[in-house]
Design a binder for these strands. Sequence first.
DNA 1: GCGAAATCGTTCGTATGCAAATGATATCAG
DNA 2: CTGATATCATTTGCATACGAACGATTTCGC
Lengths: 158, 158
Amino acid sequence: MGRPEVSGEENLLKLVDADAPEPGDYHLQEQIGFVLRKAHQRHVSIFASHIGDLTPPQFAALAKLHDIGETSQNQLGQLIAMDAATVKGVIDRLKARGLVALSKHEGDKRRLLVSLTAQGRDAVLSLIPRAQAITAETLEPLSSKEAATLLKLLAKLA
Amino acid sequence: MGRPEVSGEENLLKLVDADAPEPGDYHLQEQIGFVLRKAHQRHVSIFASHIGDLTPPQFAALAKLHDIGETSQNQLGQLIAMDAATVKGVIDRLKARGLVALSKHEGDKRRLLVSLTAQGRDAVLSLIPRAQAITAETLEPLSSKEAATLLKLLAKLA
DNA sequence: GCGAAATCGTTCGTATGCAAATGATATCAG
DNA sequence: CTGATATCATTTGCATACGAACGATTTCGC
């Protein structure tokens, strides 16, 4: 693996490795993680411009509760991809606003059941059309075919 | 577009609207925002399993500094998609670990210049191969063609 | 049935991420 | 030159997000 000597302040780069694909050509903007983070940020911003007084995770919790009805806090978290610590904070805030109610599980004293209040139910129903507008605006730079492809690929990833 | 009558406790859904695309068929898991959030979470988790003592935003700052050299805090933030408040925290933590150094801009007393230390430089060089492994593992569920498509579509979105 | 292991919820600490307000400085309009 | 405006950095407050540790409860293995 003899390598010719090079000089200059940047030449450490060229000594790093042989079988990794060119560390010197590392471009942050092309990394999946960076682009994923930026796309997510843009979506959150669009969401906020449409809804404003509710965050995407809060809406996700309400929408899922509307979909499946009463569940335990933990299970709700699994369904909407939040760990136990995170889901607790989200539910606490929704409860403080009267959108969800908590009750004890009969038979399993560990479980805390979460359900939509009437107000929470109304909120979900009025928000769903706006959520659809948010989805549309987020996907606006893409054709509908591209959007479908993106959804499919992201689903494979996640 | 006649719709048959249905019954059951959930039929309020069907009275909500006419021209919005089926509120009753709202499926959280198919929304771009939800999938984006999950894919991002998975990536962060993979990143942590490979690197651990540095977060993706911290690495992004180091990589960008390595790429372009000394810049102001604000401009660095723009380059790596962080607002001023966020970038400050990231830089503070990198500074506390001796990976970056701060200096005043001559001529513009508002600006704070950020640069890599020798240690920060070494860190970037040793981390780039691992970052490439992280990218590879994140994209592992996809073929290389699919990965390229995903990158292209996400770039269009962001 | 009993001790070990798993599950559920809570709390703490740390790290993004952003809006909004603020102080210092720079730039621009007239 | 000067007042209005813009830019840079900082600070505060709030909301995810997750690891780790914890107590209470349940379930599992034997």
